[in-house]
């Protein structure tokens, strides 16, 4: 009970922190909304023959895709940047010196990001359904929630893992964007690659997690899929990434900051001390 109380306090505190930094909140929540509105305006929203995955309205394609992108940036990007910033500022180190169990702190970071991701995805889906006539079915709702849960947990864990291997907050920020943006381009998030993309792009996208998250989430909104529309194979690939991320995070997570420009000996010393 005490753990639960501490955890809920953590989640609320992390949440409050998120809303205090307007620029982060803007990028996480507003950017996907703006992208959806722009893409629909640019590519038109005439409902054509929606009998297959390659011939669909722009909104039907982009609403789930950008919702997935919003979830990715609310979890993966935000956690990677926030956790490495807090490490750099010595906040993690202070936390480690308190009786707060470390797992509760990490769980608070992950669950508050998942909560923001849920808000963001809800905004996107609602906007798509209300403004752009996107399909949504009650029977596929459990599959939608399941895809969200597995996807957000995976990308949150990968965010913690990235923050553990990045040497600084600026490196974490660069790495997060340098991974999620190209991944979004090849994973049917920003553009529909159609049935025959270049093979190497397809192979890369099939290995990386984002396409599987996008495909499984989109399937729960597409009019031509049958309920419950749960793509277990896609979720399975995500689960493998979740485990990989968790292994890296547990193996490499540091509470102490790396000293800035104090030379390699000191760095090695710190790294040794953290083990």
């Amino acid at each position: 009970m005490r753990s639960l109380r501490l955890l809920s306090h953590q989640i609320r505190a992390q949440n409050r922190f998120f809303w205090r930094v307007p620029v982060g909140a803007f990028f996480t929540l507003m950017l996907p909304v703006i992208m959806l509105v722009l893409f629909v305006a640019l590519f038109g929203n005439d409902l054509g023959d929606t009998g297959g995955p390659d011939d669909t309205s722009a909104a039907q394609f982009y609403t789930p895709a950008l919702a997935v992108f919003a979830v990715g940036s609310a979890t993966y990007t935000n956690i990677a940047i926030n956790v490495s910033t807090r490490r750099e500022e010595g906040i993690l180190r202070r936390v480690r010196g308190t009786p707060l169990p470390p797992w509760i702190y990490i769980a608070g970071v992950i669950l508050s990001a998942v909560w923001i991701a849920l808000v963001s995805a809800t905004v996107m889906v609602t906007l798509g359904v209300v403004a752009f006539d996107v399909n949504i079915e009650l029977a596929k709702f459990p599959g939608m929630l399941l895809s969200f849960a597995v996807g957000s947990a995976t990308f949150a864990t990968l965010g913690v893992a990235l923050s553990s291997v990045a040497r600084s907050s600026s490196a974490a920020s660069a790495l997060a964007n340098a991974t999620i943006l190209p991944m979004a381009f090849i994973s049917n998030i920003f553009v529909n690659l159609g049935p025959e993309p270049p093979k190497w792009l397809r192979v890369a996208a099939d290995i990386l997690p984002l396409k599987h998250f996008g495909t499984s989430f989109s399937a729960t909104m597409e009019p031509w899929t049958d309920p419950p529309a749960i793509l277990w194979d896609r979720l399975g690939v995500l689960a493998i990434w979740l485990v990989l991320g968790a292994v890296v995070a547990v193996w490499r997570f540091r509470w102490d900051p790396l000293p800035g420009a104090t030379g390699r000996t000191a760095r090695r010393g710190r790294a040794a001390a953290a083990v």
Binding site: F17, R20, V21, R86, E89, G90, I91, R93, R94, G97
Partner: peptide, 13 residues
Amino acid sequence: GIVLQSAGVDKEL
């Protein structure tokens, strides 16, 4: 009780 030289807090709080 630990008062560290280099421990930060979330400054937006």
